[in-house]
Design a binder for these strands. Sequence first.
DNA 1: CGCTTATCGACCACTCTGGTCAATCATATT
DNA 2: AATATGATTGACCAGAGTGGTCGATAAGCG
Lengths: 214, 214
Amino acid sequence: MNDKFAKLDDSKQRQIINAAYREFTSETYKKASTNRIVEEAGIGKGMLFYYFKSKQKLFLYLVERSLAAAIRYIEEIDWDIPDVISRYEQASRKKLEAFLEDPESFYFLGSILLNDLDSLPEEQRQQILHMQQQTKERMFSGIDYSLFRSDVDPETALKLILWSINGYEQDLMARLKGETFQHINMTSYWDEFHHYLQTLRTVYYKGDECDGNG
Amino acid sequence: MNDKFAKLDDSKQRQIINAAYREFTSETYKKASTNRIVEEAGIGKGMLFYYFKSKQKLFLYLVERSLAAAIRYIEEIDWDIPDVISRYEQASRKKLEAFLEDPESFYFLGSILLNDLDSLPEEQRQQILHMQQQTKERMFSGIDYSLFRSDVDPETALKLILWSINGYEQDLMARLKGETFQHINMTSYWDEFHHYLQTLRTVYYKGDECDGNG
DNA sequence: CGCTTATCGACCACTCTGGTCAATCATATT
DNA sequence: AATATGATTGACCAGAGTGGTCGATAAGCG
Protein backbone atom coordinates (compact mmCIF):
# COMPACT_ATOMS: atom_id res chain seq x y z
CA MET A 1 0.00 0.00 0.00
CA ASN A 2 2.33 2.63 1.33
CA ASP A 3 5.51 3.23 -0.66
CA LYS A 4 7.47 3.29 2.59
CA PHE A 5 6.76 -0.38 2.92
CA ALA A 6 7.53 -1.14 -0.72
CA LYS A 7 11.07 0.20 -0.27
CA LEU A 8 12.02 -2.36 2.37
CA ASP A 9 14.22 -5.37 1.69
CA ASP A 10 12.18 -8.23 0.35
CA SER A 11 13.06 -10.36 3.33
CA LYS A 12 11.83 -7.74 5.78
CA GLN A 13 8.65 -7.32 3.77
CA ARG A 14 8.10 -11.06 3.89
CA GLN A 15 8.71 -11.14 7.63
CA ILE A 16 5.98 -8.60 8.22
CA ILE A 17 3.57 -9.92 5.63
CA ASN A 18 3.89 -13.48 6.85
CA ALA A 19 3.41 -12.50 10.45
CA ALA A 20 0.29 -10.58 9.45
CA TYR A 21 -0.98 -13.41 7.25
CA ARG A 22 -0.61 -15.87 10.07
CA GLU A 23 -2.36 -13.67 12.58
CA PHE A 24 -5.29 -12.92 10.29
CA THR A 25 -5.50 -16.61 9.40
CA SER A 26 -5.78 -17.85 12.95
CA GLU A 27 -8.13 -15.07 14.05
CA THR A 28 -11.00 -13.25 12.47
CA TYR A 29 -10.27 -9.69 11.43
CA LYS A 30 -11.76 -8.24 14.56
CA LYS A 31 -9.88 -10.46 16.98
CA ALA A 32 -6.53 -10.35 15.19
CA SER A 33 -4.00 -8.43 17.24
CA THR A 34 -1.56 -5.91 15.85
CA ASN A 35 0.52 -6.41 18.99
CA ARG A 36 1.07 -10.06 18.14
CA ILE A 37 1.86 -9.18 14.53
CA VAL A 38 4.64 -6.77 15.40
CA GLU A 39 5.95 -9.16 18.02
CA GLU A 40 6.20 -12.04 15.57
CA ALA A 41 7.50 -9.80 12.81
CA GLY A 42 10.18 -8.52 15.16
CA ILE A 43 9.49 -4.85 14.60
CA GLY A 44 8.40 -2.03 16.86
CA LYS A 45 4.75 -1.29 17.23
CA GLY A 46 5.04 2.09 15.60
CA MET A 47 6.46 0.74 12.37
CA LEU A 48 3.35 -1.21 11.46
CA PHE A 49 1.33 2.00 11.58
CA TYR A 50 4.09 3.84 9.81
CA TYR A 51 3.98 1.42 6.85
CA PHE A 52 0.25 0.79 6.80
CA LYS A 53 -1.82 3.46 8.41
CA SER A 54 -4.25 1.25 10.26
CA LYS A 55 -5.20 -2.34 10.94
CA GLN A 56 -7.90 -1.99 8.28
CA LYS A 57 -5.46 -0.87 5.59
CA LEU A 58 -3.01 -3.63 6.45
CA PHE A 59 -5.80 -6.17 6.15
CA LEU A 60 -6.92 -4.75 2.83
CA TYR A 61 -3.37 -4.94 1.53
CA LEU A 62 -3.19 -8.62 2.41
CA VAL A 63 -6.56 -9.36 0.87
CA GLU A 64 -5.65 -7.69 -2.40
CA ARG A 65 -2.28 -9.37 -2.50
CA SER A 66 -3.55 -12.88 -1.90
CA LEU A 67 -6.55 -12.44 -4.13
CA ALA A 68 -4.39 -11.24 -6.99
CA ALA A 69 -2.15 -14.29 -6.59
CA ALA A 70 -5.14 -16.62 -6.57
CA ILE A 71 -6.61 -15.08 -9.70
CA ARG A 72 -3.23 -15.24 -11.40
CA TYR A 73 -3.04 -18.98 -10.79
CA ILE A 74 -6.60 -19.67 -11.79
CA GLU A 75 -6.09 -17.86 -15.08
CA GLU A 76 -3.14 -20.11 -15.84
CA ILE A 77 -5.38 -23.15 -15.89
CA ASP A 78 -6.54 -24.48 -19.24
CA TRP A 79 -10.23 -24.97 -18.62
CA ASP A 80 -10.99 -26.28 -22.09
CA ILE A 81 -9.56 -29.76 -21.77
CA PRO A 82 -12.50 -32.09 -22.44
CA ASP A 83 -10.94 -35.02 -20.57
CA VAL A 84 -12.14 -33.99 -17.14
CA ILE A 85 -9.50 -35.96 -15.27
CA SER A 86 -6.73 -34.20 -17.18
CA ARG A 87 -8.45 -30.89 -16.58
CA TYR A 88 -8.65 -31.45 -12.83
CA GLU A 89 -5.11 -32.79 -12.75
CA GLN A 90 -3.87 -29.58 -14.23
CA ALA A 91 -6.01 -27.48 -11.90
CA SER A 92 -4.75 -29.39 -8.87
CA ARG A 93 -1.17 -28.87 -9.90
CA LYS A 94 -1.69 -25.15 -10.24
CA LYS A 95 -3.41 -25.07 -6.91
CA LEU A 96 -0.50 -26.87 -5.29
CA GLU A 97 1.95 -24.61 -7.04
CA ALA A 98 0.17 -21.63 -5.51
CA PHE A 99 0.26 -23.31 -2.15
CA LEU A 100 3.97 -24.03 -2.37
CA GLU A 101 4.88 -20.59 -3.59
CA ASP A 102 3.17 -18.78 -0.74
CA PRO A 103 1.54 -21.02 1.86
CA GLU A 104 0.68 -18.13 4.17
CA SER A 105 -1.17 -16.31 1.44
CA PHE A 106 -2.92 -19.52 0.43
CA TYR A 107 -4.10 -20.34 3.94
CA PHE A 108 -5.08 -16.74 4.56
CA LEU A 109 -7.40 -16.58 1.59
CA GLY A 110 -8.84 -19.98 2.37
CA SER A 111 -9.54 -18.98 5.94
CA ILE A 112 -11.28 -15.80 4.83
CA LEU A 113 -13.41 -17.68 2.33
CA LEU A 114 -14.40 -20.12 5.02
CA ASN A 115 -14.81 -18.06 8.15
CA ASP A 116 -14.70 -14.35 7.67
CA LEU A 117 -16.25 -13.21 4.40
CA ASP A 118 -18.20 -10.61 6.34
CA SER A 119 -15.20 -8.53 7.22
CA LEU A 120 -14.28 -7.95 3.58
CA PRO A 121 -15.01 -4.65 1.85
CA GLU A 122 -17.83 -4.98 -0.63
CA GLU A 123 -15.59 -4.74 -3.68
CA GLN A 124 -13.38 -7.65 -2.69
CA ARG A 125 -16.33 -9.73 -1.63
CA GLN A 126 -17.91 -9.26 -5.02
CA GLN A 127 -14.62 -10.09 -6.69
CA ILE A 128 -14.39 -13.33 -4.73
CA LEU A 129 -17.98 -14.29 -5.42
CA HIS A 130 -17.42 -13.70 -9.10
CA MET A 131 -14.25 -15.76 -9.05
CA GLN A 132 -15.97 -18.65 -7.28
CA GLN A 133 -18.93 -18.65 -9.64
CA GLN A 134 -16.74 -18.49 -12.70
CA THR A 135 -14.54 -21.30 -11.47
CA LYS A 136 -17.56 -23.45 -10.81
CA GLU A 137 -18.77 -22.91 -14.36
CA ARG A 138 -15.39 -23.67 -15.85
CA MET A 139 -15.14 -26.81 -13.77
CA PHE A 140 -18.26 -28.35 -15.18
CA SER A 141 -18.75 -27.14 -18.72
CA GLY A 142 -17.49 -28.77 -21.88
CA ILE A 143 -16.81 -32.14 -20.32
CA ASP A 144 -16.46 -35.04 -22.73
CA TYR A 145 -18.78 -37.56 -21.16
CA SER A 146 -18.23 -40.05 -23.97
CA LEU A 147 -15.01 -41.06 -22.23
CA PHE A 148 -16.98 -42.41 -19.27
CA ARG A 149 -17.91 -46.06 -19.10
CA SER A 150 -21.51 -46.52 -20.04
CA ASP A 151 -22.75 -48.56 -17.08
CA VAL A 152 -22.50 -45.77 -14.50
CA ASP A 153 -24.31 -42.47 -14.35
CA PRO A 154 -21.83 -39.82 -15.57
CA GLU A 155 -22.87 -37.21 -13.01
CA THR A 156 -22.33 -39.70 -10.24
CA ALA A 157 -18.97 -40.69 -11.61
CA LEU A 158 -17.98 -37.05 -11.93
CA LYS A 159 -18.72 -36.35 -8.30
CA LEU A 160 -16.81 -39.41 -7.16
CA ILE A 161 -13.85 -38.38 -9.28
CA LEU A 162 -13.90 -34.88 -7.87
CA TRP A 163 -14.10 -36.11 -4.29
CA SER A 164 -11.23 -38.48 -4.94
CA ILE A 165 -9.01 -35.76 -6.30
CA ASN A 166 -9.93 -33.41 -3.48
CA GLY A 167 -9.06 -36.16 -1.05
CA TYR A 168 -5.62 -36.56 -2.57
CA GLU A 169 -5.07 -32.81 -2.56
CA GLN A 170 -5.88 -32.56 1.11
CA ASP A 171 -3.78 -35.57 1.95
CA LEU A 172 -0.81 -34.19 0.07
CA MET A 173 -1.12 -30.71 1.51
CA ALA A 174 -1.25 -32.14 5.01
CA ARG A 175 1.94 -34.09 4.32
CA LEU A 176 3.62 -31.07 2.76
CA LYS A 177 2.69 -28.75 5.60
CA GLY A 178 5.68 -29.73 7.67
CA GLU A 179 8.23 -29.28 4.88
CA THR A 180 9.88 -25.90 4.82
CA PHE A 181 11.92 -26.23 1.65
CA GLN A 182 10.69 -24.45 -1.39
CA HIS A 183 10.80 -26.95 -4.18
CA ILE A 184 11.32 -30.39 -2.79
CA ASN A 185 11.28 -33.40 -5.05
CA MET A 186 7.80 -32.60 -6.31
CA THR A 187 8.27 -35.03 -9.16
CA SER A 188 7.79 -38.02 -6.88
CA TYR A 189 4.53 -36.51 -5.66
CA TRP A 190 3.42 -35.85 -9.20
CA ASP A 191 4.17 -39.45 -10.09
CA GLU A 192 2.09 -40.57 -7.16
CA PHE A 193 -0.71 -38.24 -8.18
CA HIS A 194 -0.53 -39.49 -11.72
CA HIS A 195 -0.84 -43.04 -10.51
CA TYR A 196 -4.05 -42.19 -8.68
CA LEU A 197 -5.39 -40.45 -11.76
CA GLN A 198 -4.52 -43.42 -13.93
CA THR A 199 -6.50 -45.59 -11.57
CA LEU A 200 -9.44 -43.22 -11.81
CA ARG A 201 -9.23 -43.52 -15.59
CA THR A 202 -9.08 -47.30 -15.38
CA VAL A 203 -12.19 -47.53 -13.27
CA TYR A 204 -14.37 -44.67 -14.55
CA TYR A 205 -13.44 -44.45 -18.24
CA LYS A 206 -14.27 -47.02 -20.84
CA GLY A 207 -11.21 -49.14 -21.32
CA ASP A 208 -10.57 -51.95 -23.76
CA GLU A 209 -14.21 -52.77 -23.35
CA CYS A 210 -15.39 -56.31 -23.52
CA ASP A 211 -19.03 -55.79 -24.23
CA GLY A 212 -19.41 -58.90 -26.33
CA ASN A 213 -19.40 -57.09 -29.64
CA GLY A 214 -15.94 -58.37 -30.62
CA MET B 1 -20.35 -32.06 36.91
CA ASN B 2 -22.17 -30.32 39.69
CA ASP B 3 -25.41 -31.88 40.83
CA LYS B 4 -26.98 -28.42 40.89
CA PHE B 5 -26.74 -28.39 37.14
CA ALA B 6 -27.99 -31.94 36.77
CA LYS B 7 -31.24 -31.01 38.52
CA LEU B 8 -32.25 -28.44 35.90
CA ASP B 9 -34.90 -29.02 33.27
CA ASP B 10 -33.43 -30.78 30.26
CA SER B 11 -34.27 -27.82 28.06
CA LYS B 12 -32.43 -25.37 30.32
CA GLN B 13 -29.47 -27.71 30.47
CA ARG B 14 -29.42 -27.88 26.70
CA GLN B 15 -29.61 -24.09 26.41
CA ILE B 16 -26.52 -23.69 28.53
CA ILE B 17 -24.62 -26.63 27.11
CA ASN B 18 -25.27 -25.58 23.53
CA ALA B 19 -24.27 -22.01 24.17
CA ALA B 20 -21.05 -23.26 25.73
CA TYR B 21 -20.44 -25.76 22.95
CA ARG B 22 -20.82 -23.07 20.33
CA GLU B 23 -18.52 -20.66 22.10
CA PHE B 24 -15.79 -23.25 22.64
CA THR B 25 -16.18 -24.38 19.04
CA SER B 26 -15.67 -20.99 17.50
CA GLU B 27 -12.86 -19.99 19.87
CA THR B 28 -9.97 -21.80 21.43
CA TYR B 29 -10.33 -22.52 25.13
CA LYS B 30 -8.31 -19.52 26.13
CA LYS B 31 -10.20 -17.04 24.01
CA ALA B 32 -13.69 -18.38 24.67
CA SER B 33 -15.69 -15.93 26.73
CA THR B 34 -17.91 -16.87 29.64
CA ASN B 35 -19.68 -13.54 29.17
CA ARG B 36 -20.80 -14.54 25.69
CA ILE B 37 -21.86 -17.96 26.94
CA VAL B 38 -24.18 -16.62 29.63
CA GLU B 39 -25.50 -14.01 27.23
CA GLU B 40 -26.42 -16.58 24.61
CA ALA B 41 -27.69 -19.03 27.20
CA GLY B 42 -29.92 -16.32 28.62
CA ILE B 43 -28.80 -16.73 32.23
CA GLY B 44 -27.09 -14.45 34.71
CA LYS B 45 -23.35 -14.48 34.91
CA GLY B 46 -23.34 -15.85 38.42
CA MET B 47 -25.26 -18.97 37.52
CA LEU B 48 -22.57 -20.36 35.26
CA PHE B 49 -20.13 -20.27 38.16
CA TYR B 50 -22.79 -21.61 40.48
CA TYR B 51 -23.33 -24.69 38.30
CA PHE B 52 -19.76 -25.23 37.19
CA LYS B 53 -17.18 -23.71 39.46
CA SER B 54 -14.90 -22.29 36.80
CA LYS B 55 -14.37 -21.95 33.06
CA GLN B 56 -11.96 -24.89 33.26
CA LYS B 57 -14.51 -27.19 34.88
CA LEU B 58 -17.19 -26.21 32.41
CA PHE B 59 -14.83 -27.00 29.57
CA LEU B 60 -13.90 -30.33 31.08
CA TYR B 61 -17.56 -31.21 31.44
CA LEU B 62 -18.15 -30.54 27.76
CA VAL B 63 -15.10 -32.53 26.72
CA GLU B 64 -16.14 -35.55 28.75
CA ARG B 65 -19.69 -35.34 27.52
CA SER B 66 -18.85 -35.11 23.83
CA LEU B 67 -16.08 -37.67 24.07
CA ALA B 68 -18.38 -40.17 25.75
CA ALA B 69 -20.94 -39.67 22.99
CA ALA B 70 -18.32 -40.16 20.30
CA ILE B 71 -17.03 -43.35 21.88
CA ARG B 72 -20.56 -44.65 22.29
CA TYR B 73 -21.19 -44.24 18.57
CA ILE B 74 -17.88 -45.72 17.53
CA GLU B 75 -18.53 -48.79 19.62
CA GLU B 76 -21.81 -49.32 17.82
CA ILE B 77 -20.02 -49.84 14.54
CA ASP B 78 -19.43 -53.38 13.35
CA TRP B 79 -15.79 -53.26 12.35
CA ASP B 80 -15.62 -56.88 11.24
CA ILE B 81 -17.44 -56.59 7.95
CA PRO B 82 -14.92 -57.77 5.34
CA ASP B 83 -16.60 -55.89 2.49
CA VAL B 84 -14.90 -52.58 3.10
CA ILE B 85 -17.53 -50.53 1.33
CA SER B 86 -20.23 -51.95 3.55
CA ARG B 87 -18.07 -51.37 6.58
CA TYR B 88 -17.52 -47.73 5.70
CA GLU B 89 -21.15 -47.30 4.80
CA GLN B 90 -22.13 -48.38 8.25
CA ALA B 91 -19.49 -46.21 9.86
CA SER B 92 -20.64 -43.20 7.90
CA ARG B 93 -24.22 -43.74 8.93
CA LYS B 94 -23.25 -43.91 12.57
CA LYS B 95 -21.18 -40.81 12.18
CA LEU B 96 -24.08 -38.96 10.64
CA GLU B 97 -26.42 -40.26 13.32
CA ALA B 98 -24.10 -38.77 15.92
CA PHE B 99 -24.02 -35.52 14.01
CA LEU B 100 -27.79 -35.34 13.78
CA GLU B 101 -28.38 -36.24 17.39
CA ASP B 102 -26.13 -33.51 18.75
CA PRO B 103 -24.53 -31.28 16.14
CA GLU B 104 -23.04 -28.92 18.71
CA SER B 105 -21.28 -31.74 20.49
CA PHE B 106 -20.10 -33.14 17.18
CA TYR B 107 -18.65 -29.86 15.95
CA PHE B 108 -17.14 -29.13 19.33
CA LEU B 109 -15.17 -32.35 19.43
CA GLY B 110 -14.13 -31.95 15.82
CA SER B 111 -12.91 -28.46 16.45
CA ILE B 112 -10.89 -29.56 19.47
CA LEU B 113 -9.31 -32.41 17.54
CA LEU B 114 -8.37 -30.03 14.79
CA ASN B 115 -7.34 -26.84 16.53
CA ASP B 116 -7.02 -27.08 20.25
CA LEU B 117 -5.71 -30.43 21.43
CA ASP B 118 -3.20 -28.60 23.60
CA SER B 119 -5.78 -27.21 25.98
CA LEU B 120 -7.01 -30.67 26.95
CA PRO B 121 -6.05 -32.26 30.25
CA GLU B 122 -3.58 -35.08 29.78
CA GLU B 123 -6.10 -37.82 30.54
CA GLN B 124 -8.56 -36.75 27.86
CA ARG B 125 -5.81 -36.20 25.33
CA GLN B 126 -4.59 -39.74 25.88
CA GLN B 127 -8.13 -41.03 25.61
CA ILE B 128 -8.56 -39.27 22.28
CA LEU B 129 -5.23 -40.46 20.92
CA HIS B 130 -6.13 -44.00 21.88
CA MET B 131 -9.52 -43.68 20.23
CA GLN B 132 -8.00 -42.34 17.03
CA GLN B 133 -5.37 -45.04 16.83
CA GLN B 134 -7.84 -47.80 17.53
CA THR B 135 -10.24 -46.47 14.92
CA LYS B 136 -7.48 -46.35 12.37
CA GLU B 137 -6.62 -49.97 13.03
CA ARG B 138 -10.23 -51.06 12.82
CA MET B 139 -10.64 -49.17 9.58
CA PHE B 140 -7.92 -51.05 7.78
CA SER B 141 -7.68 -54.55 9.21
CA GLY B 142 -9.49 -57.63 8.00
CA ILE B 143 -10.42 -56.22 4.63
CA ASP B 144 -11.42 -58.73 1.97
CA TYR B 145 -9.27 -57.61 -0.92
CA SER B 146 -10.47 -60.45 -3.09
CA LEU B 147 -13.55 -58.39 -3.84
CA PHE B 148 -11.44 -55.80 -5.64
CA ARG B 149 -10.94 -55.97 -9.37
CA SER B 150 -7.57 -57.38 -10.19
CA ASP B 151 -6.25 -54.71 -12.55
CA VAL B 152 -5.86 -51.96 -9.96
CA ASP B 153 -3.66 -51.84 -6.91
CA PRO B 154 -5.91 -52.57 -3.91
CA GLU B 155 -4.26 -50.00 -1.64
CA THR B 156 -4.78 -47.34 -4.25
CA ALA B 157 -8.37 -48.36 -4.73
CA LEU B 158 -8.92 -48.33 -0.99
CA LYS B 159 -7.69 -44.78 -0.65
CA LEU B 160 -9.82 -43.59 -3.55
CA ILE B 161 -12.86 -45.27 -2.03
CA LEU B 162 -12.21 -43.66 1.33
CA TRP B 163 -11.74 -40.22 -0.19
CA SER B 164 -14.96 -40.64 -2.16
CA ILE B 165 -16.96 -41.56 0.90
CA ASN B 166 -15.43 -38.73 2.90
CA GLY B 167 -16.36 -36.40 0.10
CA TYR B 168 -19.97 -37.50 0.23
CA GLU B 169 -20.04 -37.19 4.00
CA GLN B 170 -18.80 -33.64 3.88
CA ASP B 171 -21.14 -32.73 1.07
CA LEU B 172 -24.11 -34.14 2.95
CA MET B 173 -23.20 -32.53 6.24
CA ALA B 174 -22.86 -29.17 4.54
CA ARG B 175 -26.32 -29.59 3.03
CA LEU B 176 -27.77 -30.74 6.35
CA LYS B 177 -26.24 -27.91 8.33
CA GLY B 178 -29.10 -25.56 7.58
CA GLU B 179 -31.86 -27.97 8.53
CA THR B 180 -33.05 -27.63 12.07
CA PHE B 181 -35.48 -30.53 12.28
CA GLN B 182 -34.37 -33.57 14.13
CA HIS B 183 -35.13 -36.49 11.89
CA ILE B 184 -35.91 -35.27 8.43
CA ASN B 185 -36.48 -37.72 5.60
CA MET B 186 -33.09 -39.32 6.05
CA THR B 187 -34.21 -42.22 3.89
CA SER B 188 -33.85 -40.21 0.72
CA TYR B 189 -30.32 -39.30 1.72
CA TRP B 190 -29.53 -42.91 2.51
CA ASP B 191 -30.84 -43.90 -0.90
CA GLU B 192 -28.60 -41.33 -2.47
CA PHE B 193 -25.65 -42.55 -0.44
CA HIS B 194 -26.42 -46.11 -1.38
CA HIS B 195 -26.42 -45.15 -5.03
CA TYR B 196 -22.92 -43.69 -4.72
CA LEU B 197 -21.74 -46.79 -2.90
CA GLN B 198 -23.21 -49.02 -5.58
CA THR B 199 -21.26 -47.07 -8.16
CA LEU B 200 -18.10 -47.53 -6.13
CA ARG B 201 -18.78 -51.24 -6.11
CA THR B 202 -19.36 -51.26 -9.84
CA VAL B 203 -16.08 -49.58 -10.59
CA TYR B 204 -13.73 -50.93 -7.93
CA TYR B 205 -15.05 -54.45 -7.32
CA LYS B 206 -14.88 -57.30 -9.77
CA GLY B 207 -18.22 -57.49 -11.42
CA ASP B 208 -19.59 -59.97 -13.89
CA GLU B 209 -16.07 -60.11 -15.23
CA CYS B 210 -15.42 -60.66 -18.87
CA ASP B 211 -11.88 -61.86 -18.78
CA GLY B 212 -12.30 -64.24 -21.64
CA ASN B 213 -12.46 -67.33 -19.48
CA GLY B 214 -16.12 -67.92 -20.20
C1' DC C 1 27.57 19.54 11.90
C1' DG C 2 22.33 19.69 10.49
C1' DC C 3 18.44 17.64 8.13
C1' DT C 4 15.59 13.98 6.98
C1' DT C 5 13.84 9.65 7.56
C1' DA C 6 13.48 5.09 10.15
C1' DT C 7 12.64 3.00 14.45
C1' DC C 8 11.21 2.14 18.97
C1' DG C 9 8.23 1.24 22.94
C1' DA C 10 6.02 3.70 26.79
C1' DC C 11 1.71 5.41 26.96
C1' DC C 12 -3.47 6.42 26.30
C1' DA C 13 -8.29 5.65 26.80
C1' DC C 14 -11.01 1.94 26.25
C1' DT C 15 -12.91 -2.77 26.11
C1' DC C 16 -13.11 -7.19 27.77
C1' DT C 17 -11.60 -10.91 30.95
C1' DG C 18 -12.79 -14.75 34.71
C1' DG C 19 -14.65 -14.59 38.88
C1' DT C 20 -17.12 -12.66 43.26
C1' DC C 21 -20.78 -11.39 46.24
C1' DA C 22 -24.30 -8.61 48.50
C1' DA C 23 -28.75 -8.31 47.35
C1' DT C 24 -32.90 -10.05 45.88
C1' DC C 25 -36.59 -13.49 44.50
C1' DA C 26 -39.14 -17.92 45.01
C1' DT C 27 -40.61 -21.53 47.50
C1' DA C 28 -41.34 -24.60 51.15
C1' DT C 29 -41.72 -25.39 56.08
C1' DT C 30 -43.08 -24.25 60.35
C1' DA D 1 -47.32 -14.90 58.85
C1' DA D 2 -42.74 -15.64 59.80
C1' DT D 3 -38.70 -17.88 58.75
C1' DA D 4 -35.31 -20.41 56.40
C1' DT D 5 -33.25 -22.18 52.32
C1' DG D 6 -31.74 -22.23 47.88
C1' DA D 7 -31.88 -20.02 43.10
C1' DT D 8 -30.70 -16.03 40.53
C1' DT D 9 -29.03 -11.66 39.28
C1' DG D 10 -25.79 -8.13 37.55
C1' DA D 11 -22.82 -4.45 39.31
C1' DC D 12 -18.30 -4.76 40.37
C1' DC D 13 -13.21 -6.02 40.63
C1' DA D 14 -8.32 -6.10 39.32
C1' DG D 15 -5.91 -7.31 35.53
C1' DA D 16 -4.92 -8.06 30.74
C1' DG D 17 -5.21 -6.65 26.12
C1' DT D 18 -6.94 -3.32 22.35
C1' DG D 19 -5.73 -0.04 18.15
C1' DG D 20 -3.31 3.82 17.75
C1' DT D 21 -0.06 7.95 19.02
C1' DC D 22 4.05 10.43 19.73
C1' DG D 23 8.18 12.18 21.73
C1' DA D 24 12.66 10.35 21.86
C1' DT D 25 16.13 8.61 19.60
C1' DA D 26 19.21 6.36 15.91
C1' DA D 27 20.87 6.14 11.29
C1' DG D 28 21.94 7.77 7.00
C1' DC D 29 23.59 11.44 4.20
C1' DG D 30 24.98 16.21 2.54
